[in-house]
Write a protein that binds this DNA or RNA. Structure first.
Lengths: 332, 332
DNA sequence: ATGGGTGTTGGCAGCGCTGCCAATGCGTGC
DNA sequence: GCACGCATTGGCAGCGCTGCCAACACCCAT
């Protein structure tokens, strides 16, 4: 079968077949204006019989306002972002909008490009993650007329709507928890904090809280790449080789922490007696491990949902902090 | 700041500012046709100075062919689908296309709706998962003129392009592996196989292979909901309560299997001596566990990438089997 | 009978771009 | 000197729909 010149049906075909005007068909399809029950039924029947699918490209152009929302996430490898997407897509769907996605690989330039190409679709809103963006991005967004939602971080200035939690506060809470349990020789295993700015903020918050208690990180191990279970596993191994006397380790997130946990189990390192572990995100895998990981549960799906809702609501700019929950677990 | 009537720039504004015709600006923006280097530079400069973003809605309507591809996945909870999306989105991006996504929650009716609403955007292609769809879906797709790619399963008839692996063959290989290792009292822990038809095919293939060796499943436990680590953990617990003498368990996928593994570790059940475990998908978490899970590695990212490539290539319908790799691991 | 609602319907401009065609200027070959 | 080809450019119809306005039929109150 060839792929060209498809004789696609148009509104006027339906109008002709139903013996009504185009406007009437349009009204029926959009459930707007008043149309008699009889006419409505007839048009519906013709639409179904011919299998007509309205062309939303044309509709959008004419109506000057698209039912599309662009979403740019830094990664799809960490389940955090699919969770966010899930919340957003579900809510958008409910409101009759469609999600267009882009993956930036934690690259600001890539994000800028993706935002630009999404704006070409004149989306009703653009949803991005974090508050730090390349120079051009805010300007482009502002002059587009689209609502903008920044997700997952409330530590800083937003462009329009911000929905997330405080990475700083979460890290501080983590530090206080470890200190409260008596841990003093604390290390850190993380990934590229220059690209993942939220992880960077957590590290900064964690260190600041340690400092307030007269402590400092004993050692740190940074993986040059995105977070992963493997990176956490290897990272902890290297960290312990350099600083064997640690009594606790703070990880940049749960992926890393689960890797660390696996390393300890494999090596027979007693948790939490010999070494305590603390993560971030509250992933299923962390919460259901034989020893539930001490971590911070973030309301990712809710953030996506609320972000989508606010993006399409006609409300003023605002910052919404959805908070987090510290899960004590059994590893710290 | 109000959100209405944004004085968006149009092609004609750029043309006027640059002192050229609209066609020339259009040619510059699309790198098509011949334009003198001098004019090209001038137009580019004006576009940059004014921050003009072409309206792709209008462009698409005029050119009758959109640079959009619709992707419908059943879930985002299982990392398998984000992986698929990642492969697809990356490749689409490379080819200058945009991905519009929908999540069907393993519901055929929902899938049908999502497909319909995507077709309203006149996508160049639609990518969906599996070969089983609601009655209306294939008809709609066929009459849309869009290329169709069905992913993750090659066991059956496809509509157009099919990219995946054989769930049946993978399950048979799993069964042979367990049998070859001497396991005979085999159980199954799975999730709703009526909705996740690929998991259903694996179960059928597994049982068929057992039968060929004169064996049958000793017991099975089905969770009434999507797969998850928690479901696998609880499922194995219930299964063992009913059938304590099992020597191996086949899981519907790695999420379930990891849950089972966690259950065994928590309960001190020796793996694989007392009980062998076998999963499906080859997730990171399974491969990096203290005892790597015996599982089947599926090329999900590659499937997404290849599916996107073929969807936009001008080639005839075809089925591409990207195979799978059996990972022996340490749990079976 | 008249005027003015009310519900229903059709006509048509125009959304911002692209594709096609015509117009122009200029160099070449005979 | 003339016809022709080529590179470059501009004009404009039209993609399929929506929004606006006018038209019409009917009903009710006056």
């Amino acid at each position: 079968m060839t792929r060209k010149d498809f004789p696609s049906l148009r509104l006027s075909d339906i109008a002709a077949a139903a013996g009504v005007g185009e406007s009437t068909v349009s009204r029926v399809l959009r459930n707007s204006g008043s149309v008699s029950e009889e006419t409505r039924a007839r048009v519906r029947q013709v639409v179904a019989a011919l299998g007509y699918v309205p062309n939303r490209i044309a509709g959008t152009l004419a109506a000057a306002g698209s039912r599309v929302v662009g979403i740019v996430v830094p990664s799809l490898t960490n389940i955090v972002f699919p969770d966010l997407l899930r919340g957003a897509a579900g809510q958008l769907d409910l409101m009759g909008y469609q999600a267009v996605i882009g993956v930036s690989d934690y690259d600001g330039a890539r994000e800028a490009e993706l935002v630009a190409s999404m704006l070409a679709w004149r989306p009703a809103a653009v949803m991005i993650t974090g508050l730090e963006h390349e120079r051009a991005t805010p300007d482009r967004l502002r002059s587009s007329g689209a609502r903008v939602v920044e997700m997952l971080d409330v530590d800083g200035e937003g462009l329009d709507i911000v929905v997330g939690y405080s990475n700083r506060a979460a890290a501080e809470a983590s530090a206080r928890h470890l200190i409260g349990r008596g841990y003093r020789r604390i290390g850190y295993v993380g990934h590229e904090i220059s690209r993942d700015t939220r992880a960077g903020k957590r590290l900064a918050g964690f260190e600041a809280e340690l400092a307030r208690h007269g402590l400092a990180l004993v050692a740190r191990e940074l993986h040059a790449g995105p977070s992963s279970i493997g990176a956490g596993r290897d990272g902890l191994e290297r960290l312990l080789a350099r600083a064997p006397a640690l009594d606790a380790v703070y990880f940049s997130n749960d992926d890393m922490a689960i890797g660390g946990y696996f390393h300890c189990v494999a090596r027979g390192i007693a948790i939490p007696e010999r070494l305590a572990l603390f993560g971030f995100n509250g992933l299923d895998v962390a919460r259901l491990a034989p020893q539930p990981l001490a971590t911070i549960l973030t309301p990712r799906v809710e953030i996506g949902r609320e972000a989508a809702r606010l993006a399409l609501a006609d409300e003023p700019a605002a910052t919404v902090d959805l908070g987090f929950i510290l899960i004590e677990g059994a590893t710290a």
